[in-house]
Design a protein around this nucleic acid. Structure first.
Lengths: 340, 340
DNA sequence: GTGAAAGCGCTAACAA
DNA sequence: TTGTTAGCGCTTTCAC
């Protein structure tokens, strides 16, 4: 592969000049520039990104750390992050921690600052806990922080999941539902805590009582939602609506209801949060509260860049993504039993 | 951040020695090694991967080029590829081409050989066409090549999709189905051609006639399958089974059938190919032919490494992944009308 | 405008 | 066993 030096030699100039031409820095004579450009074309020169990174003291890469890129929501975020990175001439490294904090740390130690100029970390309690207090070689941005009102110690992009849950719950309440059960896709104090609190708050505000048996904590998956919904739907009297803290459990709840011979939304309304692609595409299309995934990714990449350029000195280390938006679809409808 | 030189100075040795300690090369005195190790610990030294890459002439990264990481199958492959890469101390770069060949080329030109030591390219006609005949700076491996019997001009990992389709079709035939329609998730000569041929071959072998109206070509998505199935199911007499070249259209077909008041699998059996996570998790669980995703990813990463190390000289540039496996689940059952 | 020179942090012969 | 010496390919002052 042709190098800068070669191009310089062939063009009868010095490496510095070629470099200047390449990046439009410094003054270069029109004729010289043309000759250099021509030579570059001719030999098919391409700058060596690693060498450039070494010289510039900063790699053209940012890393995205997730538990598993195969988890349904992450690819959508990753896609948006990659596009945002690409727009700035950066490349995206994917780091799957496989739920193993050791792997997360290893990734961090290896690439932070040496292969990636910064790290985007998906908001998982594990990661946050292990990152907090660490002295970092390169900036970190927590993505999808769930509480804009409670900034973490690390830079972050916050999405108001509390508001999302309120939006979802109010939608159900507006439709006349009063017996509303909830499926929470994490343990009590887990990552969906803000959403659960939003649900509780909305119910409280509406003056609708809520008992412990109306809530199931489970894993954030279709299966988890399926099982939880089965339990919830066996209650007497049966709930007329189910609020799920995420789309996957909501999707599972639909299956559970259908399998029990219930019609969605006639017998039971179901709503989720996030609005993943699958929510839109599956039948019946899931009513959900859309999280601004793309905007959050953009903000995250931008914030990371700022941190890289200006260091920890920047004033506001939390960016708040646009508010969630209700996406009414086919799984929610007016409460039937109400008119009874 | 501490550098090798600093560590060397503090440990009272030279950089070469520290380097040797770090990589277990050369002979280093026990005492010296201990002192160096200690210093490394003390100052929290971490090797600079970019610098190392420059010196070694090869970056510790491989790139995965896909049209969009958010396409349901890719994340599963990407996860497997990342794990395989990680096992060899490599990092995975994600490149979304967004279906745009220009972006694909740009990625290629920029990072091939300079930021990534090799490229994994998902088998899309576009990419293959544009890569063929190019002089490459770094090795390329085509992933998920669909015809083990027709090796491409580039190194590749092949998965026998023809066999997968035969497996799926035979499953339907064995269940007694004769009126079988097909949903092909690509244009006629597209990426699913081998699967469609497998379907045709199996039908022919079984002596079951097939007319043009029994086949719909559509896009590889739930929606695509939904629409195609609607058309197919309106035929008289109605098919008793649908073969889809991919899981997503198969999932869409289930919804279409259900929406038309048909019961799956009582009224209509549906089978897909790939066995994506969603196929297992959605209800009813989709019968599918599992593609060896993990094995293919492992083979791809291994082949790429070989190409990087030994160049184009290696004898066999095609690796064939293990055969597909039928995964009978809840969407296929015996043909009811047969006993009529 | 263009060139010379000094690195960026690390590896890899080859000496000692 | 350890040190010396060259780079890897590029950027970036600072002279000319």
């Amino acid at each position: 592969m042709a190098t800068l030096a070669e191009v310089a030699r062939l063009a009868g100039v010095t490496a510095a000049t070629v470099s200047n031409v390449l990046r439009g820095r410094g003054k270069v004579g029109e004729e010289t520039r043309a000759r250099v450009l021509d030579t570059i074309q001719r030999v098919g020169y391409r700058p060596h990104l690693m060498a450039r990174a070494l010289a510039e003291g900063r790699p053209p890469t940012i890393a995205l750390m997730v538990t598993s890129i195969a988890n349904p929501f992450y690819p959508e975020f990753a896609l948006a992050a990659e596009r945002a990175a690409r727009r700035q001439g950066q490349f995206l490294l994917i780091c799957n921690t496989d739920e193993d904090p050791e792997i997360g740390r290893a990734y961090f130690n290896q690439i932070s600052g040496t292969l990636a100029q910064g790290m985007l970390v998906m908001n998982s309690r594990l990661d946050v806990a292990s990152l907090r207090g660490e002295k970092h070689a390169a900036p970190v941005v927590l993505c999808m922080w769930e509480r804009p009102d409670q900034p973490p110690e690390l830079p972050c992009v916050a999405v108001d999941f509390f508001a999302a849950a309120v939006l979802a719950t109010d939608h159900l309440l507006t439709l006349g539902h009063r017996r509303i059960s909830a499926i929470v896709g994490s343990e009590v104090t887990g990552i969906h805590a803000a959403r659960f609190e939003g649900f509780q708050a909305a119910m409280r505000t509406a003056g609708v009582p809520l008992s412990d048996s109306d809530v199931m904590f489970t894993v954030d998956s279709i299966q988890g939602g399926y099982v939880a919904a089965q339990a919830l739907l066996r209650a007497e009297p049966r709930p007329t609506a189910i609020f799920a803290t995420n789309d996957l459990p909501a999707l599972g709840a639909i299956s559970a209801a259908t399998d029990m011979g219930l019609s969605v939304p006639r017998d039971i309304s179901i709503i989720g949060i996030t609005d993943i692609q699958l929510a839109r595409e599956s039948r019946p299309a899931l009513t959900s509260v859309a999280i601004p995934t793309v905007a959050a990714a953009d903000l995250a990449v931008a914030l990371l860049s700022e941190l890289v350029l200006f260091g920890d000195a920047i004033p506001n280390k939390m960016r708040v993504a646009p508010p969630p938006v209700l996406m009414p679809r086919d799984t929610t409808g007016p409460c039937a039993t109400r008119s009874v």
